[in-house]
Design a binder for these strands. Sequence first.
DNA 1: TAAGGCCATAAACTGACTTTATGGGTAACG
DNA 2: CGTTACCCATAAAGTCAGTTTATGGCCTTA
Lengths: 307, 307
Amino acid sequence: MGNGEWVPLAHRVPDLGALELLLAVARIGSLSGAAKRMGITQPAASSRIRAMETRLGVALVDRSPRGSTLTAEGALVTDWARRVVEAAEAFDAGAQALRGRRDSRLRVAASMTIAEYLLPGWLIALRGQRPGTAVSLHAGNSAVVAERVLAHEADLGFVEGLSVPEGLDSAVIAQDRLVVAVAPGHAWARRTKGVAAAELAATPLILREWGSGTRQVLDAALAQSGGLAAPLLELASTTAVKAAALSGAGPCVLSELALGEELAARRLVEVPVTGAALGRALRAVWPVGNRPAGPARDLLSLTRARP
Amino acid sequence: MGNGEWVPLAHRVPDLGALELLLAVARIGSLSGAAKRMGITQPAASSRIRAMETRLGVALVDRSPRGSTLTAEGALVTDWARRVVEAAEAFDAGAQALRGRRDSRLRVAASMTIAEYLLPGWLIALRGQRPGTAVSLHAGNSAVVAERVLAHEADLGFVEGLSVPEGLDSAVIAQDRLVVAVAPGHAWARRTKGVAAAELAATPLILREWGSGTRQVLDAALAQSGGLAAPLLELASTTAVKAAALSGAGPCVLSELALGEELAARRLVEVPVTGAALGRALRAVWPVGNRPAGPARDLLSLTRARP
DNA sequence: TAAGGCCATAAACTGACTTTATGGGTAACG
DNA sequence: CGTTACCCATAAAGTCAGTTTATGGCCTTA
C-alpha cells in the first residue's frame, strides 16, 4: 500500500490517558470528579478535555455549574473510546502476566491462540475477583505447555488440540471451531447450504503456514475428503490471513476466536461446512492427580462454562 | 467497585505511538526502517522500544546487525498491541467523520448502533478504496436520519428498524439480530434447546432503557407472547447492560453487534429463542428516485453483502 | 578493505502536560 | 439573603518524557 502523506495515528487520536479521562467523565458526570478519580487536578482535566475537543473539532461535553454531561456526539466518541481502552486493558493484563515475576502465585502456560484471544479477558476477570493474585504466563505450543505443567513449572496449562498429552488430566473449557469465511462479495457468501467437505478440500484456500495448530486440525479433518488442495496463499500470521480474505482474495480458514469481530460486523461471512468436523476442544490441563487448588482453581472456574 | 491503589492505565500501557511503532517493526523487520516509516529518527525508535521493554519487563525484539525480529513474547505482545491500534483506527475514522467539514464529499446520517459498531469499519475500507473522500457523519434515531436524507442534508442514511420511513428507497445491507445472552454459570447456558418466547417474555431481563431501538424491537417481538415482564435492570448504555450480564445478574438482550466479542470468547453464552422473530434489517436509505451515485455509491457497495 | 546496512549511547533541546493560584458561576441551606 | 459548597475556566510557572543531533561499533557484501 502506498504511503502518501501519512501521519502517525498517535497524532490524530488522543492518548490513552485522555480517552480514559473521557470515560471517567461519562461515568461520574463532572470534570473535577473525574480528575480526582484519575489522580490529576481539575484544571488538568479541563485542559485535556478541551484539547481533545479542539483536535476532534467537536464538542464532547456540556459544561454546567452543576456538572458535565456528554453531548450526543460525545456519547458516540465515548463508545469508540471505550473499545480502545478495553483493548488497552487486555494488553495490560497480558503484559503483566508475561513479565513472569518470581513471586507469582499462579504460573500459567498456554498455547498461542488461547494466550492471544482468551487469556487477557480471564486475567481481567481474575483481577476483579482476587486482586492480589500475581500471574505469570508462558506461551508455546501444546508440547511445550505439557512439558512445563509436568515439570511443575506451571500450575495450570491451556492447550488446543485433538488429544490430551500423556500424564495430564484435563477439563474441556470451550469448544473452538475452525470457520470458513469469505468476503461478502464472494460466491460462497450466497451458499446458504454451505459447502461439502470434499469441495472445501478441493478449493485453494488462504491458510496459516504449515505448523500452526489451525492448519493441523484442518489437515486432519479433511484427510478423508481427499486432503487439502494446494493453498491459494500461505501466510505467517492470523492478521495477514484475515486481511487477504477481506480483500476478496478467496476463502480463509481461521479459528472462530480470530474472526469474531469480522463476522459480527459482516465484514466477513461464515460459510457452513458439511461433512467434516472442524471443532476442537480447548482444554485446561494439570498433572494427573494434582487437582488445581488455590489461585489455579479460581482461574479454572472462570474459564469453564459450568463451574 | 473499590478504588484501592489504582494507577491510570496510561501509566502501565505504552502510548499509541509506541504500539504503532512496534507493529511497524514487526512488519518491516528493522528498527531504523520502522523509524523512517513513522517519521522519527532511528535513535528515537530504539529508545522507545527499549523503554517499552523496560516497562513490560520482557524482551520484545531480537536485535542483530542485519535487522530486528520479534521474540516469541514480542509476537504475543504485538498481537495484543494490534488490537489496541485497530480500535484506535476505528476511533480515528469515526472521529474524522464526526467533524462534519463543509467540504465533505459524502454526508452520511446513521442510527446509533450502526454509527457505533459498523460505520468506522466501513470508513476505513472506504479510505482504502477512495483515499480522497471526506466524510461527514450525523448520528440520531431513525426519524432524524430520515429527515436529514429527505432534506438532502445527507447523501445516504442508515437505519435499523422494522419499517422504511415514507419517501425513501432502501436496500437491506445486513440482518441484525437481538441476542439473549447469559453468563456461562447461568442456568440458561445449559439449555441447548433454548427458551420459548413466552418464557423469555415472563422472565425479568437486563435491558436498555425505554426508547432505545433495541428495546422497541424486543417489545414488538414479544407482544404476542404476553408482553415483556418488568425488567430486572434497566440501564442507560450498552456497556452497562453487558457488565451486568457478565457479573451474572441475569439474562440480557442486546444486538449481536454489541455482543460479538463476548460471545466469541465465551464470556457470555447465547441462548436460542424459539417462537419470536428477533431479527431486524439494517437498511441504507435515500430519497425516492435519487439512486446513490459517486461516493455514496462507493460506500453503499462496501456495506452490502451482495453488490 | 571499503561501503552500506543495522543498532547503541550521550547530551542538548523542545514541548506537551501538569500544578499552583485565581476568579466567576449556580444551587442548597439556614 | 448571605454562606457554603459544589462546579468550571484561565493564566503562569514548572517538569519530564521523548526527540534530534552527533558519534561509534558491529556485521555483511562487493
